[in-house]
């Protein structure tokens, strides 16, 4: 081959080594990208991107809802399981078609920003304050507000520690509201780092941290059960201390992304999914979820409750906490934030 290098390498020499290499690289890249796109176009099913709070997804509830929904509709659900804060970001940027969230104050801002329409409350449950089994701040059975006051006092005496999510999630929003109701300025006490520890991470990691520090924390019931019940109790140092009190109510709602603000949003699919979650079948899945594993429901269906006022005490709690003002009345979704589909609010 070395007898006639010029002749053999003629074309190669003209293009140069790097020319050939770049051509090959371009061909391979284009082929693989075009191939993948062609493959992706083959699917005829619609795509519905749902940004959801972690507590709904991580408990496994939404997997069950998804299976039942996809069997009925030609829509594939893509769940993005993130904290309520970033979920709203995704919807604002047009990367999600709808939201499942549990932070009413943030939801109102989202509606007011014209990002979302047709808010519907579909489930509720209660937060819990969990803490070390020996309960150094002596809060067991107290009201949430009194409990927090005692934890602050004990914390300042170095006998108790509080662990906070600190991540802008719905649970964190709730915690800040509770501190305000108890008369504390969250932005000030978070600096008392000797007893106030922020994890900045999800509920599971926060529970593990609280368990390790033998500390108090606010948790949703689903994540706490997932960690404390089962083959191994991963938070043996923690137990539920305060679970009563209207302040602990936790309300989940669905919001469709405003299609006039985000023309790419799949509004009809979002409406179909909202209706499914509100339907008898959807509400039954929600109410029964967790009984087989934990012996109790993790979420309670809200549709029939709100419609027929079957439990006035809880209905009043939900209305006080998660309804918004609309002229002189209170409603789950003020009329100016409704778009089409009046049957949702019959």
């Amino acid at each position: 081959m070395h007898n006639d290098p010029k002749g053999r390498g003629n074309m190669a020499t003209k293009l140069g080594l790097w020319g050939i290499v770049i051509i090959i690289a371009a061909i391979v890249s284009i082929a693989s990208i075009v191939g993948t796109f062609a493959y992706m176009q083959m699917s005829t099913r619609q795509k519905l991107v749902v940004a959801t709070t972690t507590s709904l997804y991580d408990t496994g509830l939404l997997d069950e809802v998804e299976t039942a929904f996809e069997a009925k509709y030609t829509i594939d659900i893509y769940f993005i399981s993130v904290g309520s804060g970033i979920a709203i970001q995704f919807a604002q940027r047009g990367d999600a078609d709808m939201l499942l969230v549990h932070a009413p104050s943030e939801e109102l801002k989202f509606l007011q920003g014209n990002y979302g329409v047709n808010r519907k409350i579909f489930a509720y449950n209660f937060f819990e304050i969990v803490g070390p089994t020996d309960d150094p701040a002596n809060i067991e059975g107290l009201s949430p507000i009194d409990a927090l006051s005692r934890i602050v006092a004990a914390g300042r005496n170095s006998t108790a520690v509080w662990v906070s999510r600190g991540d802008g999630s719905g649970t964190h929003v709730k915690e800040k509201e509770l501190w305000a109701q108890a008369g504390f300025n969250w932005t000030l006490i978070r600096d008392e780092v000797n007893w106030f520890k922020e994890t900045g991470s999800g509920m599971g990691k926060t529970l593990i941290t609280a368990n390790g520090l033998k500390a108090y924390t606010l948790t949703d019931i689903g994540t706490f059960l997932a960690y404390s019940v089962g083959t191994t109790n991963q938070v043996p140092n923690l137990e539920t201390l305060v679970a009563q009190g209207s302040e602990l109510i936790n309300v989940y709602s669905a919001i469709a992304v405003n299609v006039t603000a985000n023309p790419k949003a799949n509004f009809e699919a979002a409406t179909a999914f909202t209706k499914f979650v509100l339907s008898e079948e959807g509400q039954q899945i929600i109410g029964n979820y967790g009984i087989a594993t934990y012996g109790q429901s993790l979420f309670y269906p809200a549709v029939e409750l709100l419609k027929s006022n079957t439990n006035p005490t809880i209905v009043q709690m939900i209305k006080d906490y998660a309804y918004f003002n609309d002229d002189s009345t209170r409603t789950e979704c003020p009329t100016q934030y409704r778009y089409g589909h009046p049957e949702l609010y019959d």
Partner: peptide
């Protein structure tokens, strides 16, 4: 996303969160 982009590392992270 289940059935779309769920890979080993994201599953490990998710299962850890779920306990």
């Amino acid at each position: 996303i289940r059935g779309q982009t769920r890979v080993l590392t994201t599953t490990i992270a998710m299962e850890t969160t779920q306990g």
